[in-house]
């Protein structure tokens, strides 16, 4: 085991999949010589050559559109879109074709491509470099939407995403790229897509979150336990869509209370789907209204105000306490 950052772990996942499978090809802006603006594809071009690590022209729609063609032809393109804020150019190709070719061709074709793209705020960036718009992709039938929360699960999930027979949008929380290291095994490791993970057991309340927000969620759980004796059960979604709510339902049926946390805007966000599922399946077990701790429904502010926008540990603690007061 080696201690790795998320950047290094993602690089490992691609390197190993490329070694094993010559169908895997990387495309994107600055992914080759530069190794990606966050260095996630660092030095892959020197190992695998520019046929397999392709610096493309500056055209996001072009990257995804050609990747669809490659995928249909039997390759496994792993595309990088430099920031998720620039991914809206890809949306048309993704929604109109990647997500539908399997259905439209009645199973003859499928589109096993991965779109990797950094998401989320907290890094004092420019406009369009801090948003969390996973809901757009989660709302697209035929597309899987994955967001890891640490180096180890990032690596394991990316391996599964590359091997998956269908299109996967893989959001990488850029605030976590180098935030901490984790033991990541050198030997192959994958994790199934579509399975939330029970991170901590607890009886008092269930906190459901994913991505970069797992950091303040875990801090909040520590603080609640230490200062207030409240033991929270914590679930990390990992896959936003398709959402398997089995674990969520069983947890909330045990605790009777839930708080959902994400940095994406609140309305029509992933939290809305989670709360709906709880109402549908666990209504009679709920002892308090479910709380959402989220970003606001506003344009993400430039970084002088981004702390005020971003949910923090205190806000999660507060929400949990309010849930328990009912």
């Amino acid at each position: 085991m080696t201690k790795m950052t998320m950047v290094e772990a993602l690089n490992l996942a691609m390197r190993q999949e490329m070694e094993k499978d010559d169908r895997v090809i990387i495309l994107g802006e600055d992914v080759g010589v530069d190794g990606g603006v966050f260095r996630v594809t660092d030095s892959l071009i020197s190992t695998f050559g520019e046929q397999r690590v392709v610096d493309t022209p500056l055209a996001e729609s072009g990257i995804i559109g050609t990747s669809i063609g490659m995928a249909v032809y039997g390759l496994r393109p792993v595309c990088e879109i430099q920031f998720s804020g620039f991914s809206y150019y890809i949306f048309h190709q993704l929604e109109a074709h990647a997500a539908r070719l399997r259905h439209r061709s009645q199973g003859r074709f499928h589109v096993p491509l991965v779109v990797r793209t950094p998401c989320g705020g907290g890094v004092r960036a420019l406009e369009h470099h801090s948003e969390s718009r996973e809901a757009y992709y989660a709302h697209t039938p035929g597309v899987k939407m994955v967001i890891p929360s640490g180096p180890r699960n990032a690596r394991a999930l990316l391996v599964s995403a590359i091997r998956d027979p269908d299109p996967v949008v893989f959001f990488e929380p850029k605030a976590l790229y180098r935030a901490f290291r984790e033991e990541v095994p050198e030997e192959e490791e994958s994790m199934p897509l579509g399975q939330p993970q029970l991170v901590r057991e607890g009886d008092d309340v269930t906190i459901i979150s994913y991505g970069a927000m797992m950091v303040p969620v875990l801090e909040a759980a520590d603080s609640l336990k230490e200062k207030d004796g409240i033991v929270a059960e914590i679930i990390d979604l990992l896959t936003i869509s398709p959402l398997d709510d089995t674990l969520i339902a069983s947890s909330v049926q045990k605790t009777g209370r839930a708080v959902v946390v994400h940095e994406a805007p609140r309305s029509f966000g992933p939290g809305a789907e989670l709360v709906a599922r709880l109402v549908e399946k666990s209504f009679y077990y709920l002892e308090a209204p479910v709380k959402r701790v989220t970003g606001y429904d506003i344009v993400y502010p430039l970084f002088a105000r981004e702390k005020a926008y971003m949910p923090d540990t205190g806000k999660i603690v507060q929400a949990v306490k309010e849930t328990l007061e009912v």
Binding site: R266, S267, Y296, D297, I298, V299, P301, A304, R305, K307, A308, Y309
Partner: peptide, 21 residues
């Protein structure tokens, strides 16, 4: 600076749901 200014300029007028937020 007032961090709450981040709510300015979202719409011509802040809708009720955003006033609450």
């Amino acid at each position: 600076v007032d961090p709450l200014d981040m709510f300015n300029h979202t719409f011509a007028e802040l809708p009720p749901s955003l006033i609450l937020q």
